[in-house]
Amino acid sequence: MTTLLNETLKESIYMPTPARITAVKTFTPTEKFFKIALPSGFSLAHRPGQFVEVSVFGVGEAPISICSAPSRSNGTFEMCVRAVGKLTDALHRLAAGSTIAIRGPFGRGFPIERFRGKDIIFVAGGLGLAPLRSLIDEVINDRGKFGRIHLLYGTRTPQDILFAEDLVAWANAPRTEVHITVDRPDEAWKGNVGVITKLFPKLRFHARNTVAIIVGPPVMYKFVLMELLGKGIADGNIWLSFERQMKCAVGKCGHCQLHHIYTCQDGPAFSYAQVKHLEEAFS
């Protein structure tokens, strides 16, 4: 018998479960990759695009995307963390063997069953590749059910590229193209330079049978949306993941409220059709 991790919230929706860091990899000076094991008999059973709340006791808690595919998780999962403040800095100081605590999975992920049979454009800016990775891997693991796949990925410099091994593996998958661009190249960089929207002319797709999934910093959304809508992709076929400040992840603290929606419960994944009329969605 396995226990789903979120069943442990029965006593208190705020109280996490211990989990162990089993491996740490340094991706960049600010980003680290963590492999996490739940206690024996527990399963996360997440959907791509969902997140967990990660606790370091005495420091606090923060929402972090699950970056591994559900089909690859067996009481374990992965995350990629950028050190930007109290909790994320504390996580960066922890080595394999350390214990943290986890609640979740939370929110609605991407409705992968609705993407079957379609061509897919993934657009990732910076750390946005982390939540997308759970979806990309899930799609690639079930490659036959999906059409052509394009991944557009933009970072600031070549040194900021995350998941380098995965990018190579995806590029080698059948009917899959990976395009990477950097804002500021170094001498060794031979690839694309410039903002992510510059990659769109490289793509050949039928707007009618294409879904696009965008995850990146807030500033990226407006420009990428203009590009995709301009190409004729339907509002309901464009999916995004929203970042908001979150202090509870269970629809109580009010921090993540966007219009009448609680991002932690109804998001973080939304279709453009769901949010396009909501004030502050793209502010």
Partner: peptide, 23 residues
């Protein structure tokens, strides 16, 4: 009803509590 959540911990970094406060 909005609130903030913070941790408080003793000087030995052992016993602590998670607190919510009106925000």
């Amino acid at each position: 009803y909005c609130f903030d959540v913070t941790d408080e911990i003793d000087l030995n970094l052992e016993h602590g509590e998670r607190i919510r406060q009106w925000d």
